[in-house]
Simulated scan of single mutants.
Amino acid sequence: MDVVELHRRASEEFVRQVASVRPHQWGDPTPCSDWTVRDLVNHVVGEERWTVPLLAGRTIEDVGDSLDGDLLGDDPASAASHAARAAQNAVTEPVLRGATVHLSYGEEQAAEYVYQLAADHLVHGWDLAVSIGAPVHLDPQVVDGISTWFKEREDLYRGGGAIGPRLEGYSDPTSTLLGAFGRDPAWTPAHATVERLGAAFARGDVDAIMYELTPDCVFESTSPAPDGTRVVGGKAVREQWEQLFDQTNDAVFETEETVVLGDRAVVRWRFSWNEADGHRGHVRGVDVLRLRDGKVCEKLSYVKG
C-alpha cells in the first residue's frame, strides 16, 4: 500500500474515533500521560493543520505561532474532520513529485513526512479509542505498512525521546507495533488513575491522593497485626495520610510494579523513612485496589512480615 493511502486510512479512522468522544470524556486521561483526550485530539489536528502549508513549501518560520493553542473550538469533531480532509488533499501531489518538506530537523522527503503522519494517526487513534472505551479498529494493512516503515526508525525515535521503552512479548502484529511505540496494549483509563495515585504518594501530596479516591473510599492499613485498621470515608482516610506524612521523617513511597486488570489493580511498593539514628528504614508491600468510575474506591494494604 502506498503512503498516501496509508495516511488516508489512518486519518479517517482517527476522525471516526473523534466523533465517538462523548461530552464528558474530553478531560479523561490517555496513554500519553501528560495529555487528556482533548489534548491528544488537539495535537493530531495541529499536525494536520501544519501539513497543508509545509507540503506547499512553506517553512516553520513562515507558519510561526499561527497554529499554537486550541484548534478544536466548540466542535472538535468538525475541526478534526475538516483538518483531516485538507491534509489528505495536500499530500498526493508532493509525494508523487518527490518534493521535500521543511521540518524541525531540516529538509525531508515528502513521502517520509507523510509516513510519520500516518504512524502518528494510527498510534494516536489507538490511544483515543482505549481512552474513551470505544472499539479499536486498526486496519491490518495500515499496521503492516507502518510496521515495515518503522523497523528502521524505531531507534531514532527512541533516541530522540519521541517514544518510551519498547514493550516486548507480543505475538500479534498490532500489539507488537504498539509495544514498539512504547504502548502497553492492555492499557485502560484505570492505568492512568493508578499511575496518578502512585505519583501523588511519591510526592506526599495528600490533596492529589484524595482526588483519585471516591468520597466513600475504604482503606485498610497494615497495622496492627494481623488485620490492620479499616477506615471508611474520604475525611477519615485523609486523616490517615496526613498523620503518616506529618509524623514520618522524610517519608517516600516508590512504586515498583503495577498490574491492572479491569476494575482491580495490584501495586507493589517500597516505603522508606529516616530513622532517629539517621539510618534509612524501609518496608515493602502491596496495595490491592478496586476502582469505580475512574476513581479508587478501595485500597487494601499488605506489608512483608
Rank of each mutant, 00 (worst) to 15 (best):
S171D: 13
R230V: 11
R166A: 15
K295M: 05
D28Q: 07
V266L: 14
A134T: 02
L156W: 14
S223P: 03
W273C: 03
R280M: 03
N89E: 08
H282L: 02
S221K: 01
Q17K: 09
E13G: 04
V142K: 05
L244G: 07
R16G: 14
E112V: 04
F245Q: 08
E254D: 13
W50Q: 02
Q240L: 15
Y157M: 13
T30N: 02
P29D: 02
R58P: 09
K235D: 12
G106I: 09
T176E: 13
L213I: 01
R8W: 01
S11E: 09
E239I: 01
L156M: 10
L197F: 11
R238Q: 14
V237K: 00
G285M: 01
D277F: 12
F219P: 13
D68W: 02
P173R: 12
V252I: 06
W26G: 03
R268M: 02
G46W: 05
D120V: 00
G69A: 13
P224Q: 04
R196M: 01
V45I: 05
I163R: 11
E275Q: 14
T92H: 12
V101A: 06
G161P: 02
I163D: 07
E220R: 10
S175Q: 10
V37C: 03
Q116H: 10
A129F: 01
V283Y: 12
V194T: 00
H191P: 09
L122I: 04
D65K: 13
